[in-house]
Amino acid sequence: MTVIGTTPPPRLPVRDRSAAHEGAGGLSPMLTRLAAERATGVLVREHGSLHLADGEVVHAESPHAPGFDVLLTTHGTLDATTWQEALAQTGSKSGAVRLVVDRGRLTAGALELCHLGALFDAAYFALAPSSTPGRFRYGGGHQPGTVRPVTVDVMERETLRRRELLRRVWPDPLADSAPLIRVAPAAAPAVTARQSAVLTLVNGVRTATDIARELGRQAFHTLVDVRRLAAAGLVAPQPPPVRVSPPVPAVLSVSDPDITLLKRLRDALEAL
């Protein structure tokens, strides 16, 4: 007896999104590759940059997160003059921070705590979904101020966990970036001391990032409180101003499938 079977068609190469998000590398295939090749240099993404040394993250910066110098000087841990002097003397932030530790103005523990906090904080924004591909500049551009390097794997896992944490508190991300306004709910719930510090700075102009900088507090910590306050109905993102400009011509309008296609194209290019 002969069994006649047809060869099943080969499966189309579909990108497995769930798998990509579970393991490391779900955030930036480029970063995963750089970690694998133990690269040294700076990865510049739309919302911030990551400094790598031997494939590990040693420093991160983002316009959305206050740097560790802001965290240290806001509450007078370091007075601004001491900091400016150290900065002028050494020429770099990391050099300056070493100098103040050596002079006993700051303990090693405080420096590590503050630096690590600021590193994860800035990385959270740097690894946020972006609309442009990242660029990597190879080279030992990083200053010798490595405090505690963090592996890419740990960094990506933490960033994903933070996204999920915020989503569980309040699913609307608009409050993260828009100017915030105060809302007076009928029955105002009690706020914590840290939340009330945030709440007093909400004035219809400041964004969560501005508030973080003003408080000398990590931006992600501020986002957690902002989303809690939003969930409690105490703050809301400023509604966008009503547009008086003529409507955008239809030629420029994009529909979702186009964006999806472009994002897939970008992902594929990054993964090359």
């Binding site: 965290l71 240290l72 806001t74 509450h75 007078g76 841990t77 405080a110 705590l113 503050c114 906090g117 840290r194 408080l215 000398g216 507090r217 990590q218 910590h221």
Partner: peptide, 10 residues
């Protein structure tokens, strides 16, 4: 709880 001279929650 660790008291820090800067804002933190550790």
């Amino acid at each position: 709880f660790v008291p820090t001279p800067f804002d933190s929650s550790v």
